[in-house]
Design a protein around this nucleic acid. Structure first.
Lengths: 336, 336
DNA sequence: GTTTTCTAATTAAACGTTTCATTTTTAAGG
DNA sequence: CCTTAAAAATGAAACGTTTAATTAGAAAAC
């Protein structure tokens, strides 16, 4: 409908609009941006002509002039990790609400790639970065300069933070199992180079210790496949319940149990952490600790955009609550 | 390490490098881009100085001058659909290989959002678009103009295409079940407004009909939850096997069966389609048709970049083969 | 009627590149 | 040693915006 009238093939520029409207380029710019002082009649006329020509500002030019690109970068460890797509989705949507676009990057768990990605984004001139670091290492320290950065789920002294109250999550899980009557409970934690990950299991373990119910505390990589030692511990009858620091590992544990003909939850109860979508599809559904990842995505964008607007404001640190989601993997311990 | 020496706080520009190297801006530009004619010594010297100052080109400026942004847009229906993250990941990586960045957008299955997203990307000046349309409707027809677009898994007369040989996939699935000895087989297909989706099930159904083994052919939305009629048909004993047009629906069928205490694969065999990561984590693992989504992502980028480089080249249409992945949901029909 | 103030509009510079057209330098040819 | 050609380097315009500085015009103040 709003095709270019003077159809020269190219997209119309400010100059074209100015020419067609019979005013100067500056006036068009002012009118379009509600800036400067433009008379009511002229403004209307300019807007009209611009619409008729189908004028769209050239954002590259705008970016060069203003130094702002209207784009932000999202740096994630791994898009195929089921935790992240929902986050990415909400970041993209929240950004679009504010007319920002999002460069998404996934670093495959490599620090090298993380740095390369950040560098590429900075060079692109993004106005800010939302960064979910691989682990606790601050690999971008020397790269970001004064660029607004929002860090997710990690500590970082230099940037705005959005964190998760993992302590309370870890406690909730442990308490739920205690409440169900379990007294021999194993804890499996995820990656040890991530504080937030260690903390989850640590708080679980602490609660269990207090009830004298901690059978053992092991580690496993963030993976569906259990390491042999862990698989053995899970299935050797030493525990009636598991507190697992990540859903993916929890699903792996369920799998290991089933392969040895043990039933969940009749023989072993399990609670995970993350509430990844897989969990809801399992049978029975995995009981877990939910992280409000959608809200986090939205809030990440909002916080970042505020920081972009007001770089000098004092550092923000948001903490999100988690909730326990009961599905089907918790039952009383087997009686025998 | 490579900080700006003349540390004025701002990032060094071509001019700064030129000044520091004692040559003209043009020479620096030529040297950096291996263009024009620059003497060997000068070239080395310029490169040296540029490195020392930590010069990075301002891509907005470059974009304005050249009309190319070095960015592409990726438009997907829904990032939380487990089919897409792997695609997105590979698109992002392949693009980075060629120094392109990717704007990722997810349209939540709305045509409105699809158009809005495309418009935003075009305005941003992306050099091309990789588009996985929601259904067969060509909603962007009037927007893309001469912009290079690569369409995934759909037909479109105007653009380069990357498709999947779904016919052969549908046949493979049906034949596998026949080979296992099943003679009462149900077919569940996904969204009906997508040709590629209809086709999967249609080819399955055709094979089954030929063997006089098609019990029924039903539809279900792309969802884990089965519509009542479908759930009933799945569990009423009318079939010993299911050919399902999408893994997510297949997992829903397994769930429905389990809730009625039917076993997979002992009572009912199931083959899905897509090979989404969930399937591998189920117990038993879901047998399915694998779509080489990683390669598709890479090839999508390659094809798009070739089109960007050579807009006039004749239209390309790539078809990817699928493969059958045997896991644990296929067994001979129950004997009774 | 002249000066002042305010508003509306314009001119032109600037942002950081690329690249065409031009000048300067070097090398080759006689 | 002079002329010519080739190579190397430069100057300046252009890309599409924003915005500071300026001018023109109209209304207000004296």
């Amino acid at each position: 409908m709003t095709k270019d009238e003077t159809s020269g093939g190219k997209r119309p520029t400010l100059k074209d609009v100015a020419l067609a409207a019979g005013v100067s380029v500056a006036t068009v710019s002012y009118a379009l941006n509600d800036a400067g002082s433009v008379g009511g009649d002229t403004r209307r006329h300019v807007l009209d002509v611009a619409a008729r020509l189908g004028y769209r500002p050239n954002l590259s030019a705008k970016a060069m002039r203003t130094g702002k690109t209207g784009a932000i970068g999202l740096i994630l460890p791994d898009l195929t990790n089921p935790f992240f797509p929902a986050l990415a989705q909400n970041v993209v949507h929240a950004a679009r609400e504010s007319a920002y676009s999002v460069f998404v990057t996934d670093t495959q768990g490599s620090h090298e790639a993380e740095r390369a990605a950040a560098q590429a984004l900075i060079q692109r001139g993004v106005d800010g970065l939302i960064w979910f670091p691989i682990n606790d290492e601050d690999t971008l320290a020397d790269l970001t300069g004064g660029l607004p950065v929002l860090v997710l789920d990690r500590d970082n002294p230099r940037h705005d933070l959005i964190q998760i109250d993992v302590d309370s999550g870890g406690r909730m899980a442990a308490e739920r199992l205690i409440r169900a009557g379990h007294r021999r409970i194993g804890v499996i934690s995820g990656p040890t180079d991530v504080r937030s990950s260690r903390q989850r299991s640590e708080s679980s373990a602490e609660v269990l210790r207090r009830h004298d119910a901690l059978a053992w505390h092991l580690h496993n990589a963030y993976s569906f496949d259990l390491e042999p030692a862990v698989a053995a511990a899970v299935t050797d009858g030493s525990v009636t319940a598991l507190c697992v620091g990540a859903d993916l590992i929890a699903l792996g544990a369920i799998n290991a149990l089933r392969q040895r003909a043990l039933r969940v939850p009749e023989d072993v109860s399990i609670i995970g952490f993350d509430n990844i979508p897989y969990g809801a599809l399992a049978f029975p559904g995995l009981s877990t600790i939910n992280i409000p990842v959608e809200e986090m995505g939205i809030e990440a964008v909002n916080t970042l955009l505020r920081r972009i607007a007001k770089p000098a404001e004092s550092r923000r640190r948001l903490v999100f609550d988690v909730t326990y989601v009961e599905r089907g993997t918790v039952a009383p311990p087997p009686t025998r």
